[in-house]
């Protein structure tokens, strides 16, 4: 049983300078490696770790995370096995953890069962890219009942929607840096600082930027504009290339990006 609240995990993640938030797909290449990656990335400077529960049809993902999800599902990973892994992690680590997945996985597994698992294992937030503001009522009551944060996302196309989304946001706000799906990009042209300012105008809540951040330079630049930086595809790509031997190269990459953010 876990006795830290979701908010205390989030405070922990965002209280030591800019937060570095890596994403990995659970079960790619296997859950033993995912577990090792969590410990190693925490040591390398990760402040909050996003665990992706693979979905057969991840509409918000680019090819890198699509392929990782496919590998993981082929390897037999399930939501139950992922909860078991988190249970093992919690015996050794209190690193802030979030789940990133799709609405159907919670809905079909059972919202109560899923959120009870999150609450008991100290998963502080769940990021669901296919639940926009208009549909969060579908699940919000249950999230609040179990004290788990449902993360709100804003995008470059949100414009006048930012203030209403931000006003009701909890935990932190996920700022989608670019149009399109997840993936590595050479540069980010969106005015992320303006998006973040739009949020802060109505709600004093941490903002983390994700989508397309794949090198130290962009990570450093984005960390100036926001409270945290989310890096997914670039890390998943290293995992894909090295398989079970990915721990050291991933950690090297995490240290490099975290270091670049601290220099800013």
């Amino acid at each position: 049983m876990n006795n830290m609240t979701a908010q205390s995990y989030i405070d922990k993640a965002f209280s030591n300078g800019k937060a570095f938030i890596p994403f990995i797909t659970c079960g790619d290449p296997d859950l033993e490696t995912t577990e090792k990656l969590v410990y190693a990335m925490e040591k390398a400077g990760a402040n909050l770790i996003e665990l992706g529960i693979p979905f057969s049809d991840p509409v918000a993902e680019g090819p890198i995370i699509q392929e990782a999800s496919e590998r993981a599902l082929k390897g037999g990973v399930t939501t139950d096995k992922i909860f078991d892994m988190v249970k093992r992690i919690r015996e050794k680590s209190s690193v802030p953890l979030a789940f990133m997945t799709y609405a159907n996985l919670l809905f079909t597994y059972g919202l109560d069962k899923f959120l009870l698992g999150c609450k008991e294992l100290g998963i502080c937030c769940v990021i669901l890219p296919d639940i926009p503001f208009e549909e969060k009522g579908e699940m919000l009551d249950k999230f609040q009942e179990y004290g788990v944060k449902m993360i709100s996302l804003i995008a470059p196309t949100s414009k006048d929607r930012i203030s209403k989304i931000a006003a009701e946001a909890e935990g932190f706000v996920y700022c989608v840096s670019s149009m399109g799906v997840t993936g590595t990009r050479t540069e980010i042209t969106t005015d992320v600082a303006a998006m973040v300012a739009g949020v802060k105008e109505v709600n004093d809540i941490p903002c983390a930027v994700g989508f397309g951040i794949s090198n130290a330079e962009t990570a450093a630049k984005m960390s100036k504009a926001a409270d945290g930086v989310i890096v997914g595809s670039a890390i998943v790509k290293i995992v894909g290339a090295h398989g079970r031997d990915c721990i050291e190269p991933v950690c090297e990459f995490v240290r490099e990006l975290k270091g670049a953010m601290e220099q800013e």
Binding site: V59, A60, A103, P129, D130, I131, P132, F133, E134, E135, E138, L153, I154, A155, P156, T157, S158, K159, R161, I165, V176, M179, G180
Partner: peptide, 21 residues
């Protein structure tokens, strides 16, 4: 609820597409 047929339907899409729909 807007866009619902009984409890079915809705707009379960990424925020990026919301202003488009």
């Amino acid at each position: 609820i807007k866009g619902r047929f009984g409890g079915f339907g809705g707009q379960f899409i990424p925020e990026t597409l919301m202003n488009a729909v």
